[in-house]
């Protein structure tokens, strides 16, 4: 390599790095701001056979629609073995004669969403909340009653991801 070439390459790369000092920073300050590129719920439309795009996080179970047909359990059977059908006698709904509902073990769930695709009764959704952490491994198990409560709204300020020509995708503050 010639000396002039060497010096030119060196100058170009050092200059590129220096210019980068004055760019917008890429990092988002988690957990004060949280990026969710898609804030919708992942749902499935059994009539069309196509799912509705959304973030695949924690499930939401509509107990008034669940018939206890176990299709979500069968869908999960060989994927993560995370869903178990749990009898909940106190939750009496006419359409669910046996009163069995799915409970999800998030220590096993891989968030693939094929259980939602299997549900023919619009009973199972996936919400954008994916941060699930517990001190005890067994607490990662969510019973049907816990799943039927809508997820707690995030304490962080509502942040939307903005897509920009100059800055890429970044959170709008």
């Amino acid at each position: 390599m010639k000396t002039s070439e060497f010096l030119k390459g060196l100058a170009v790369s050092v200059w590129t790095g220096t210019v980068h000092l004055f760019r917008h920073r890429m990092t988002s300050m988690y957990p004060e701001t949280q990026n969710y590129p898609n804030t919708e719920m992942y749902a499935y439309d059994p009539k069309k056979g196509v799912a509705v795009s959304g973030w695949r996080g924690r499930h939401y179970l509509d107990m008034s629609k669940c018939t206890g047909c176990q299709l979500c359990f069968i869908a999960c059977e060989n994927i993560a073995e995370a869903i178990e059908m749990i009898p909940v006698p106190e939750a009496a709904h006419a359409q669910n004669k046996k009163s069995i509902y799915p409970g999800v073990d998030y220590g096993r769930c891989v968030f693939c969403g094929f259980c939602v695709d299997a549900c023919p009764f619009y009973a199972l959704y996936m919400t954008p909340v994916a941060e699930i952490s517990e001190m005890n491994r067994n607490d990662l198990y969510y019973s049907p009653v816990e799943l039927s409560v809508p997820p707690v709204p995030n304490p962080a300020p509502k942040v939307h991801v903005n897509f920009d020509k100059k800055r890429g995708s970044h959170d709008e503050r």
């Binding site: 073995e81 749990i86 409970g103 073990d105």
Partner: peptide
Amino acid sequence: WVDEERDRHDLVIERVEHER
């Protein structure tokens, strides 16, 4: 092996019933 895994899973279900 899958069956063995299931047996382990039963422990978790017992816990939930206990809570109820």
